[in-house]
Design a protein around this nucleic acid. Sequence first.
DNA 1: CATGAATGAGAGTTCATTCAT
DNA 2: GATGAATGAACTCTCATTCAT
Lengths: 210, 210, 210, 210
Amino acid sequence: MGIQERKERERERRRQQIIVAAKRIFKEKGFGRATMEDIAKEAELSPGTLYLYFKNKEDLYASLSLRILQYLGIRIEHVDRDAGDALAKLDELIEAMYDVYDFDPIMIINLFHLQSSETLKNLSPQLMLEINTLSKKSIASIARIFEDGIEQGMIIDRHPVALADIFWSLFSGVILWESSKKIIDGSKDYLRETLGAAFNIFRKGITVKK
Amino acid sequence: MGIQERKERERERRRQQIIVAAKRIFKEKGFGRATMEDIAKEAELSPGTLYLYFKNKEDLYASLSLRILQYLGIRIEHVDRDAGDALAKLDELIEAMYDVYDFDPIMIINLFHLQSSETLKNLSPQLMLEINTLSKKSIASIARIFEDGIEQGMIIDRHPVALADIFWSLFSGVILWESSKKIIDGSKDYLRETLGAAFNIFRKGITVKK
Amino acid sequence: MGIQERKERERERRRQQIIVAAKRIFKEKGFGRATMEDIAKEAELSPGTLYLYFKNKEDLYASLSLRILQYLGIRIEHVDRDAGDALAKLDELIEAMYDVYDFDPIMIINLFHLQSSETLKNLSPQLMLEINTLSKKSIASIARIFEDGIEQGMIIDRHPVALADIFWSLFSGVILWESSKKIIDGSKDYLRETLGAAFNIFRKGITVKK
Amino acid sequence: MGIQERKERERERRRQQIIVAAKRIFKEKGFGRATMEDIAKEAELSPGTLYLYFKNKEDLYASLSLRILQYLGIRIEHVDRDAGDALAKLDELIEAMYDVYDFDPIMIINLFHLQSSETLKNLSPQLMLEINTLSKKSIASIARIFEDGIEQGMIIDRHPVALADIFWSLFSGVILWESSKKIIDGSKDYLRETLGAAFNIFRKGITVKK
DNA sequence: CATGAATGAGAGTTCATTCAT
DNA sequence: GATGAATGAACTCTCATTCAT
C-alpha cells in the first residue's frame, strides 16, 4: 500500500534526522552534557518528538553505536567468508576497518566512548546484552581469521581471541588517541597515517618469518 | 617554621584522603554519576570541605589524572636517561608501563576515560593546557627512545612521534578494551597476558631484522 | 429528516464507545493517571477523535459522572412520586440505590471520586453548576420523602435535608470504603451485605417506635 | 548534648513547616494538581529542600495521612481498653471520632481522599502495607467494642467487623459529603450537626430494644 | 469526519555549590 | 578550618491538545 509505505519512509527519515542531530550534539558535548533539548533544537523538532522515536536518551545514544556495531559485524564476517590465506584476509580485515571508520567516523568514536566510558555502567541490561552479543560476534570473526593463520603456520601461535582483542584494541586506541590529541592541542589529523603504520607494525609483529 | 610545615603536611594528607575516596567512587560510578556527596561520604567529610581542597568537581577529577600523568612522565624520562641501546630501552619502557599501571590501575583507567571521553570537552583551558603539556612531554620522551633506535638501525624507519603515538595507543587501547570486556560480560581479567602479548607483537613489529 | 437522525444516532454511538472505554481506563488507573491516549486506544480511536466528541479530558470525565447523576435523579424522583407511606417509600428508595449501583458500578464509584476528590476543585464553573443542580435535585427528592415521614409521624423529627445528607453519605461511604478495602488488601467484596446491613441500621435508626 | 538536641528540634520544626505548607496546598489543589514547587513556595523554601525531608511527593503526601491514622489508632485503642458497657464505649468512640476530626480536619479529609481515590492505586507497596496495617488495627479495635455489645445483648447480632465498617463508612461518608457540598455550593458548614445526627441514628439503629 | 504526529509547557527530581554557624 | 542544610538551575520525560492531511 502506497500510503503505508510513504508513512514508513517518512518515519525513517525523521529517525535519521534525529540521529544526525544527535550525532552532532553528542560529538560536540559528549553524552553527559548533551541535553535532549539540544538535540531537539538541532533537529528542529520539539523535545517531545524525540520520545516518539526513541524510548529515552540512552536509547538514542545506543542507537548510534549499535548501528555501526552492526555494520562492523557484517563487514568483518564478509572478510571471514572470503577465500584466500590468512595474511590476505588480514589485509582485507584492515581494509574493512578503514571502511568502518569511513562509514561514519563520528559514530565509531561514539562507539569507543560507549565502550570505554562510564556510560557502559548505566545501560539497561537489554542494551548491554545487545552490545555484548554484537561485540562478541565481531571479535569471534576476527579471531577465526587469526586461527586459520596459525593453523597455516603463517601467524604466531597465540590464543586467537587474544590476537583479536589486541587488533581491536590497537584500532580503537589509535582512533581515540588521535581524536584526543586533536581536542587537546588542535593538531592536524594524522589518523590515517598513524592507523596505517599501526596496522603494518601489527602485521609484521604477528607474522611468522619464513 | 615547624607549625607552618605541620599544617602543610596535614593539608596534604587531607587532600590525599579525598583523592583516595574520589578514586573509589569514580571507579564505581564513573565521573558523571559520581556525586560530590558520594565522595564526601566515602572520605568521611562534609561536602563543603571538599571545596576547601578542590575548586570544583572537575578540578578534583583532573587531579586524579594529572597525578598519574606526572608519575608517567617521570618514569619515562628515567628510562630515556638510562644507558643501553634502544631495544633495551624499549624493554625498560614496557616495564615502566607495567609500573605505571600497577602504581594505580584505577587512576590509569580514569586517565584514559578523561582522554577519550566527553569530559575532555568540558575542561577549563588551564587544565587542558596542563594535560597537554604533560602528555606531550611523555610522548616526546618515548619518541626519543624510538629515535635513538632508528638512528642505531635497530628500529624501522618511521616518524618517531608516530611510533610513540602507536605505542601509547596500544597501551591505552588494551587497557580500555579489557576493562570494557569485564564490564560487559563480567569475564575474567586477562589484562596482564593481553598486554604482554601486545607489547611483544609491537616489539617484533618495529624491530629491524638482522 | 432521516439522514440527520442517522448522523445523530451515529454520533451518539461514538460518544458511547468513548465513554465505555473511558470508564474502563478511569477505573483501572484513576483520573490522574489515565491518559487520553490510553482511552483512545481502548476505544480503538485516535486521540484527536476524542476531542471531536468531548471538549477536553475533564469534560469527558465529568460526562461519566453526570450520566449516573441524571439516572439517579430520575430514579429517585420516580420513588418520590409513587404512592405509599414514607417507610414504604424508604424501602423503595433503598431499592433505587441498589438499582443505581447496579446500573453502573464503575460510574458510581467514579462519581464519588469526583465528589470526594481533588478533581472537584479543578472543574469548570459551568460543569460545577450542572453537578450542583443535579445533586441538589436528588437530595431534595430524598429529603421530601423524609419530610413526609416526619409529618406522618413515622420518622424522627430531624431536618429532612440532614437526613437525606446522612442517607447519601452512608451510601457513598460504604461504597468507597468497601472498594478501598478491596484495593488495600484484595479482600473479598462484601459490598452487598454491608450495604444491606447499613440501610437496615439506618432504617431502624430513623423510625419512630410505636 | 545540647547542640545535637537543638539540631534535632530544628529539623523537626522544618518538617512541620513543610507539612503545614503541604497540607494547605493539597487541600487547595488536591494531590494531582499540587506541585512540589507550590509547596516549596508556600513553605518559603526551595524545591530541593523538600527532598531533604521527604523522599518524594508521594512520601510527603502519605506522611500527612499516616500521622492521623496513627492518632486514630491510638485514640480508638484507648476507648477499647476503658471500662464500661458497650453502649458507653460507643459513646466514647463517637467522642473519639470528633477528637480525631478536630485533631486535624484537613488531614482527616486528606486521609479519606487517599483511601477513596486513585492515589491509592499508585502508592508504593511499602506505604500500602503501612496504611493497611494501621487501618486494619483501628477497624479491629472498633469491631471489638461491637463484639462486646453483642455478647452483652445490647447491640444487634451482626458481624462485628461489618458494624465497624459501617460505622467507619458513615463517619468518612459524612465528612466527605459535607466537604464536597462546601466546595460545590459554598454552603455553610453543617458538619458537626450532621455528624451528630448520623451517629445518633447509627446508635439507635444498632441498639437492642429492651 | 478521522487521524496521529507533533507540540511544548510543565512536572518531579537531582546535585554542584555556597555560606551561616 | 569544617560543617551540612539550603539552594535553584537544569535535567529528563509526560501528556493534553492541536492541526495538516
